[in-house]
């Protein structure tokens, strides 16, 4: 097979960037999309031209590194997969394929198709955890968690943090990502003590990073490689409303006795 690639090239964050056109020849339909790009790079390197930078690691759809917008859709034309799981037999021979990076203010471009997604880590650091120390945990069976509850938590927890939801959203909103994280921990009793604090902190961090807001268009769900449902966004909103009410009813200033002991 043979393809014409229109690839976004950008030397660094300050470069304006432009599309470059490459021919991908001798492509086998059994190649993954990234192997096809490898092939293009292998032909560029001996000519001392810098290969196209793109992110990838596990190449089996779980690490969440790969991040290409292919013909206007994050992770390309197939559904429920990451770019590394996309195979060339999905394309018709001779087609022109446009490849762009994730685009969002919160994801500045590092080079070519590689973007900086640390904003997602910072949202996690704001509260995406259960703050318990190592050691001293009670026996795992002390907390009984129904199968349905565990499955629901797992549905949310399977997010790989690739950022396709943000890339696909018209508003570059990170709501599905935050929803998955918040819903995972809110679905489990272990997450309960910090439930209100967590959702407030993560939402605040999300806004701080410059992501847009949810427009209920559900484009995120349609491109999510793990098919994470937008119902978790409703869960997130519920958690947020609840937290707003709970927080306003609780003292937030520690009283003097607490301060002394601290």
């Amino acid at each position: 097979m043979k393809f014409t690639l229109k690839v976004w090239r950008q030397r660094g964050p300050d470069d304006k960037g432009r599309f470059a056109v490459y021919e991908a020849r001798d492509v086998s339909p059994d190649m993954s999309f990234l192997e096809m790009l490898d092939g293009v790079n292998q032909s560029l390197i001996p000519t001392d031209e810098e290969p196209v930078a793109f992110e990838h690691d596990c190449r089996e759809g779980i690490c969440g590194s790969c991040s290409l917008v292919i013909n206007g859709v994050p992770h390309g034309p197939d559904r429920g997969i990451t770019t590394c799981q996309l195979y060339m037999r999905q394309f018709s021979d001779g087609a022109t394929i446009t490849i762009e990076p994730w685009r969002a203010r919160a994801f500045p471009i590092i080079k070519d198709l590689v973007v900086d997604r640390r904003a997602l880590d910072r949202v996690m650091q704001a509260g995406g955890y259960i703050s318990i120390n190592t050691g001293g945990a009670v026996d795992g069976n002390v907390l009984l968690i129904s199968k349905e509850q565990a499955e629901n938590a797992m549905d949310a927890a399977s997010c790989i943090g690739c950022g396709a939801c943000i890339a696909a959203c018209k508003n570059a909103s990170a709501m599905l990502f935050v929803a998955a994280k918040v819903s995972h921990l809110a679905a489990l009793p272990q997450g309960n003590p910090e439930r209100a604090r967590r959702v407030m902190a993560m939402m605040e961090a999300m806004d701080r990073e410059g992501f847009g807001s949810c427009g209920n268009q559900y484009e995120c769900e349609a491109v999510c490689p793990k098919n994470i449902s937008v119902r978790f966004i409703a869960t997130l909103q519920r958690e947020y409303l609840r937290a707003g009410i709970v927080e306003s009813g609780l003292r937030t200033e520690p009283d003097s006795a607490d301060q002394e002991s601290a």
């Binding site: 229109k6 976004w8 599309f19 917008v69 013909n71 206007g72 859709v73 446009t98 762009e100 685009r103 969002a104 203010r105 919160a106 696909a168 018209k170 508003n171 570059a172 909103s173 410059g210 992501f211 847009g212 807001s213 427009g215 209920n216 268009q217 559900y218 484009e219 769900e221 349609a222 491109v223």
Partner: peptide, 26 residues
């Protein structure tokens, strides 16, 4: 909200295809 959302993506895509978003929502 609209202003904030516009700021959230300063550089748009050259090619864009919607899968789910309805015309109304956009």
């Amino acid at each position: 909200l609209v202003l904030r959302n516009r700021r959230a993506r300063p550089v748009g895509y050259a090619l864009r295809e919607y899968r789910h978003a309805s015309v109304a929502s956009r």
